[in-house]
């Protein structure tokens, strides 16, 4: 118990310090950090399903794209205030997420991956082709969230979103619902026999994860001023996946740290042009093959705290 308080305390301090960033870094670095936080939220949302519930899905990025377009199209065509777009996006992705979860309630492993992958591709293809509405690959221009553009304000907005998702997922993870997810991850049939309604748990988990992604995607699109189908591509899914694994899948903070660190590294490697993605992928391959618990496991080695079930990684 004390360990958990300690971790939360450290977390809060770290975030507090981090929030002073804008005073010390350039506008461009802030831009990079904002992107890093976006990926951190996506990684946490994916980790919720993949790490905590053991459901390796490939639909994460697609929900971000869905949220971005839902919000953008809603605002552009209804004339409602901008913030309502975010609410609309969260609602839409939540509903679709629940539907997908219900659809996949009996699927596992490879088949689950394939169906969620197909879902992601269907979403991307529809967005790309319905160009009368979405302008296809050429992106949909969406208005900014803030009436006056300020990178600093966007930074705080993203940081707030991050804090909500981080502590939200931690809280759920520790609740009865979280326990049920864990039970399903370990042994689905045993969980069923214990009276856990696996279908319901999975549906709700899918919905929550999708909502977080949808909201993140919408916010991101409004920051960039642009929503593109690329947001929901396999390439993006790869980035989310690699950030989560490198950070530590199944841990509560690992994915977020992985995301920010890798995004900053990605930016630094930018000058190496074509090589940076290769370096990334090779690193991830190394981690998955030799350090499946991610870099978080290194931290665990130094600390002699008892490992709680949350930080047990999938192999």
């Amino acid at each position: 118990m004390a360990a958990k308080f300690k971790l939360n305390f450290i977390l809060i301090c770290a975030i507090g310090l981090f929030s002073f960033c804008p005073n010390f870094v350039s506008a461009y670095s802030l831009h990079v950090l904002i992107i890093g936080i976006y990926y951190a939220v996506m990684a946490l949302a994916w980790n919720f399903l993949a790490g905590q519930a053991g459901l390796l899905v490939f639909s994460q990025a697609a929900f971000a794209a869905m949220g971005a377009y839902a919000s953008g199209l809603f605002i552009l065509h209804s004339g409602c205030p901008i913030w309502s777009g975010l609410i609309f996006a969260t609602a839409v992705t939540g509903i679709v997420g629940a539907l997908l979860g219900a659809l996949c309630r009996k699927l596992n492993g490879t088949y689950l991956a394939l169906v969620t992958l197909s879902f992601a591709e269907i979403v991307r293809i529809v967005i790309t082709n319905e160009d009368r509405w979405t302008r296809g690959t050429f992106g949909l221009q969406v208005p900014g969230l803030l009436t006056e553009y300020s990178k600093v304000h966007y930074f705080y907005l993203f940081l707030s979103l991050f804090v909500i998702v981080l502590f939200g997922s931690k809280w759920i993870g520790r609740s009865r619902f979280g326990f049920k997810m864990l039970a399903i991850k370990d042994d689905s049939d045993a969980a069923e026999s214990l009276g856990i309604n696996t279908a319901r748990v999975r549906t709700i988990a899918f919905a929550l994860s999708a909502m977080a992604s949808g909201l993140a995607g919408a916010t991101y699109a409004h920051y960039l001023g642009l929503a593109t189908p690329e947001m929901g591509s396999l390439g993006e899914m790869f980035l989310i996946l690699s950030m989560t694994y490198v950070g530590g899948i199944g841990t509560s903070v690992g994915p977020a740290v992985g995301a920010i660190v890798l995004e900053v590294a990605y930016e630094q490697l930018r000058d190496f042009g074509q090589y940076h993605l290769l370096v990334f992928a090779a690193l991830t391959l190394f981690v998955v093959r030799f350090m499946p618990a991610g870099f978080s496991s290194l931290v665990g080695v130094f600390r002699t705290l008892k490992k709680d079930p949350e930080s047990k990684a999938t192999t």
Binding site: G54, L56, G109, T110, A113, G235, F238, L241, S242, Y245, Q274, Y275, L277, L278, A281, A282, T284, L285, V288, R289, P292, T314, T315
Partner: peptide, 27 residues
């Protein structure tokens, strides 16, 4: 060989491998 017993791991590993190979091809 080292990973084939574990389905999820194999999926993720081969997924990442595909990205590595794509980038090698590009370079």
């Amino acid at each position: 060989r080292p990973i084939y017993k574990n389905q999820s791991n194999a999926l993720v590993t081969t997924f990442i491998l595909s990205i590595v190979l794509q980038n090698i091809a590009m370079i």
